[in-house]
Amino acid sequence: MSRTGIPEMANRSRLAQEFMELGRLESLPIIDMHTHMGPFYGTYLPEAPLPRMLAEMERENIDWIVSAPHSALFDPIAGNREIVAAMADHPKKIYGYYTVNPHYSDRINEDLAEYDAIDNYVGFKLLPDYHKYPLTGDRFTPIYEFANERGLLLLSHTWGHSRYNPPGMIAELAVKYPNIRFLMGHSAPGETDYAIEVAASLPNVYLELCDTGRLNGLIAKMVREASSEKVVFGTDFPWYDPHYMLGSVLFSGIDDREISNIVHDNAAALVGGVLQRKAKRG
């Protein structure tokens, strides 16, 4: 190995340069729109406990997150208790999705009656591939009607060519429920071109970066074809390190205005809109 000179980084993004200098982005706090909480059966997650998540958020300058704990996704008896407690304990750091398990929809009316009383709920989380029930199934209809009436967010797991949550189902629902802001979790890996097309053509559909944002060239394509206003930052944290996805954004070749939209501004506008509408309803 004979090299001694280290090449200067050609990426002229001021935000990328700041990150490489400091090891974190101090001038622009991150908002993570796709997170979980707690341990998960299939993998070891060192940062899974909530106190460690909060410490990591502080270290990485993550302003706040929107979360759906694993207990809500996979333990029908526990339901949404963990996120309600976390939001009550950390109201400025944690917002929540109300997670719906379609196999236990018998108590949905009671739960929805409580939804409006919990300040930090901003929408719903669906996980059709894991729950083995399609996004367009009838059991979700009361959820969609409720969310549409209030202009809520809906984060759904999406996957290309899935029988339960392909991007085509999001397109169908987005036309039917125009007041819901649909966040396509993972942006449908295996079918991202279609997901980008749906986000570009429907005003209430957004691309979410978890998983697919790492692929070389994909963020630039999303911004080029659907605009930076239609891409939101998400990571599955505590699964994945938000800094990893931040690097994928910072080095995607887009400009700093577009980076700000993805890392912070779009999420602030989406959640801010939900909270404003909630305040108006009283």
Binding site: G23, N216, Y244, G247
Partner: peptide, 18 residues
């Protein structure tokens, strides 16, 4: 692991690892 991964992700994960 380029091009499965854009280089920026792993680069920032290491630079920002603490």
């Amino acid at each position: 692991g380029f091009p499965s991964n854009a280089i920026g992700g792993p680069l920032a994960a290491l630079r920002g690892s603490g």
